[in-house]
């Protein structure tokens, strides 16, 4: 697993396209949100900025990059090559996804740390961490599922758009409009409950007992994403 992860890390830093889409774009967008935090806080809250930063990094840095990587590795039969070794499927997938996942997590932690220093620290760090980790797991699952529908790295530019835009749109809708109306719908959408958790965790003022039930739909989306991944992921190109 670590041998695969190491080789993936080498490839990320040798591939300018992946570097730009996976590292630079999410950081640039997040930096803009942090820089303009007063403007966005007026329209919503600091918690909204935290949530939209997390979803931007997860959508572009983790999800889109993972789909592109997996489609590319399948297209050039690298996945088949790895399956010709003694490595198990779980080890192979973990090794392939691990570098992108760790980079995305480091980006989120670093950006939120700066954001916390520039503004105020989150009220419930543990709850925020759980929401971020659940979002990360959901996006990894969705990446594996989407990779099953993606024939090539070029095709990934199209197939990743719906989910990338959807989760950022949901985060913005829930973060700006709140969940007082259309509560069930907003919480049922992918990333909806996770956004509400992040907003609550950053802003504070909501009893923990009121926030904890939001973990159920958040984790349900993790289960749905992993279930979709196990059904849709393909190891070899279609013939």
């Amino acid at each position: 697993m670590f041998a695969i992860a190491r080789s993936e890390l080498i490839q990320i830093f040798r591939n300018r396209l992946v570097l730009v889409t996976g590292l630079i774009i999410p950081v640039a967008i997040s930096a803009y949100f942090v820089y303009q935090h007063e403007l966005f806080a007026d329209q919503a809250s600091l918690g909204y900025i935290a949530a939209v930063v997390v979803f931007t990094v997860m959508a572009f840095g983790l999800y889109a990059t993972s789909v592109t990587t997996l489609a590319s590795r399948r297209q050039n039969l690298f996945l088949k090559r790895l399956r010709s070794t003694a490595a198990g499927d779980a080890d192979i997938l973990t090794g392939l996804i691990l570098p992108v996942t760790v980079i995305a997590l480091v980006q989120v932690v670093a950006i939120l740390a700066v954001f916390g220093l520039v503004t105020t620290a989150p009220a419930e760090v543990l709850l925020l961490a759980v929401a971020i980790l659940a979002t990360l797991a959901m996006m990894v699952g969705l990446a594996l599922a989407t990779a099953g529908l993606t024939n090539s790295p070029e095709h990934a530019q199209v197939t990743t758009l719906p989910i990338s835009l959807l989760v950022i749109a949901v985060a913005s809708w829930v973060g700006i409009a709140g969940t007082e109306d259309l509560t069930v719908l907003k919480r049922a959408l992918p990333g909806g409950s996770a956004t509400e958790l992040m907003v609550d965790a950053w802003n504070g003022g909501v009893p923990l007992a009121d926030s904890l039930p939001l973990l159920a739909p958040t984790l349900a989306w993790v289960v749905v994403a992993i279930s979709l991944a196990s059904r849709m992921f393909r190891w070899e190109p279609r013939r």
Binding site: Q11, N76, R81, L82
Partner: peptide, 20 residues
């Protein structure tokens, strides 16, 4: 073939060998 184009020959043999 099934090798990653961005890895060198040595890295490719080392990777597949390590997993063998």
């Amino acid at each position: 073939s099934g090798f990653s184009p961005d890895l060198t020959v040595r890295e490719s043999v080392g990777l597949i060998g390590a997993l063998s």
